[in-house]
């Protein structure tokens, strides 16, 4: 037979993946609001030097513990540092370390989770038990142990967070990947004798990106909180670095005198976490709907 089967399918050539993702995002108000809040935080952190003329770490004893005024909108703390400036700069540490830590965690967790789903057998079993063991340790405890042993510093904190959160990410990703592994295109790749890594990258990962993205947004909010808790306990950022957790710790003794010095970083932290949570929620819903609507 020689007929060329050229009948186009019912669907017109679809928009590119990026456009589609963007359109889905726009369709979810929750995700849009969440991502907008996060974007504002990122912008503020980047543009902090332009937004305030005060130095966040310069002491000025003559202006200590002032209430809000025209000069200092959020007042000053016990060393006379401008609270607003410290809040604006404070996002840099929180965001920088959190984003790095979350990236490392989610990347590692994804690879481990996919590999477990793909390999199966004893590999999956042994890995599962190890992850269970790590999961049973409270994350803040694991964090404190690592930090006490290896000293503070951003690199150590990233490592510590990875240790405590990778098992959780791996669990979720493994679950998502298990739905993809029995598909015939994975079997076809296996029959070609491709390596686990190449199957993971080409066949599995593109089909679970939605899960990974949602996981990223959700873990990011946990990590931000965890890092701030660490700073509050004195194991995170070193004074006088402007950091929200550290600011709350420094100023809680003076909370009755200058409440804004404690409240301002709390508000900043809360909005960032709420923004991340909204983004995570909205993304998961939007992508869930997206798959049905576009029949992918």
């Amino acid at each position: 037979m020689t007929t060329l089967d050229t009948t186009p399918a019912a669907v017109a050539p679809g928009p590119r993946a990026a456009t589609r993702a963007w359109r889905t995002l726009r369709s979810s108000r929750t995700a849009t609001v969440g991502l907008a809040i996060v974007a504002v935080h990122v912008l503020i952190a980047l543009l902090a030097p332009l937004l305030t003329s005060y130095d966040p770490i310069a002491n000025d004893a003559s202006h200590a513990l002032l209430g809000p005024s025209a000069d200092h909108w959020a007042g000053t703390d016990q060393y006379g540092r401008d609270v607003l400036a410290r809040v604006l700069y404070g996002g840099r540490y929180a965001l920088g370390v959190s984003v790095t830590a979350t990236l490392v965690t989610v990347a590692l967790g994804t690879v481990v989770g996919c590999a477990a789903a793909l390999r199966g057998g004893w590999f999956d079993d042994v890995l599962g038990r190890i992850l269970d063991a790590v999961l049973s340790i409270p994350s803040i405890l694991a964090l404190l142990v690592v930090v006490t042993a290896l000293g503070t510093g951003p690199a150590v904190i990233v490592l510590a967070i990875a240790v405590s959160y990778v098992p959780q990410v791996a669990r979720v990703v493994r679950g998502a990947a298990l739905a993809v592994v029995p598909m015939d295109y994975v079997t076809a790749a296996r029959a070609r004798g491709e390596s686990t890594w190449s199957i993971l990258r080409r066949e599995v990962l593109p089909n679970i990106t939605d899960v990974v993205c949602v996981e990223f947004a959700m873990r990011a909010s946990w990590v931000v909180l965890l890092i701030s808790s660490l700073s509050f306990l004195g194991f995170g950022a070193d004074p006088p670095t402007p950091d929200w957790g550290l600011m709350v710790a420094e100023n809680r003794t003076a909370i009755t005198v200058v409440p804004m010095a404690s409240l301002a970083p709390i508000i900043a932290l809360a909005t960032l976490v709420v923004g991340l949570n909204l983004a995570a929620d909205g993304l998961s819903k939007a992508w869930g709907v997206d798959r049905i609507r576009e029949g992918l």
């Binding site: 993946a17 598909m183 015939d184 295109y185 079997t187 076809a188 296996r190 029959a191 070609r192 004798g193 491709e194 390596s195 080409r202 066949e203 593109p206 089909n207 990106t209 992918l296």
Partner: peptide, 26 residues
């Protein structure tokens, strides 16, 4: 399959029952 030499692997190929799951949707 992964222990067969490449030259042998390519000689034997499989076509699947369900065309919906035999191609990567992405």
């Amino acid at each position: 399959a992964h222990r067969r030499p490449l030259a042998l692997r390519r000689r034997i190929q499989l076509v699947f029952q369900n065309a919906d799951t035999s191609l990567n949707p992405r």
